[in-house]
Simulated scan of single mutants.
Amino acid sequence: MNELVSIITPTFNAEKFIRATIESVLNQSYQNWEMILVDDASTDKTIAIIKEFTIKDNRIKLTELLKNSGNGFARNMALEKAIGKYIAYLDADDIWLPQKLEKQIKFLKDNNLPFTFSFYDCIDEEGNSLNRRVEAPLELTYHQLFFCNHVGNLTAIYDIDFFGKIVIEATQKRQDWRLWLTILKQIEVTKPVPEILALYRIRKDSISSSKFKLIKHNFGVYRDFHGFNFVFSVLLMTRFLFTQLIIKSRYIKKI
Rank of each mutant, 00 (worst) to 15 (best):
N128I: 05
L214C: 03
F212Y: 08
M237E: 12
K61I: 15
P114E: 08
F240Y: 13
R174A: 06
N13F: 04
I55E: 08
Y251W: 03
K109E: 09
N68V: 03
Y86G: 04
K100F: 07
E135C: 04
E64M: 12
K191Q: 05
N149I: 10
L179G: 13
L37R: 03
D121L: 02
E23N: 10
W177K: 13
I36W: 07
N68P: 06
R178T: 14
T21W: 02
K204E: 11
I255C: 05
G164N: 01
W180F: 15
Q104H: 14
R75A: 13
I50L: 03
F232K: 09
T182E: 10
E126Q: 15
K173Y: 08
Q31A: 05
K106A: 10
F12L: 06
R19G: 13
L37Y: 09
D39Q: 05
D57G: 04
N71A: 04
R133F: 04
I95M: 00
I50Y: 03
Y89G: 02
S209Y: 10
V25M: 07
S210D: 14
F228Q: 07
H217Q: 13
N153E: 09
K45Q: 14
F163E: 09
I160K: 00
E102N: 06
I252C: 11
S118M: 05
V134Y: 00
T171R: 15
D44A: 04
K61W: 05
F219P: 15
I87N: 00
I187A: 03
L26W: 00
R174V: 01
D205K: 05
Q175E: 14
L113Q: 07
K109T: 08
I157L: 03
R201D: 00
Y86T: 00
K81D: 10
L145V: 12
E64D: 02
D161Q: 15
Y89V: 09
I183A: 04
I166R: 07
L97S: 01
E15W: 02
Y200K: 13
Q175C: 10
A14W: 07
I123P: 03
R203I: 12
K103D: 03
F230K: 11
G227L: 02
Q99R: 01
N71W: 08
E188G: 12
I160T: 07
V167H: 11
K103H: 02
K100C: 12
R59E: 01
S129L: 13
L181S: 05
R239P: 11
K45V: 01
E195Y: 04
I196N: 02
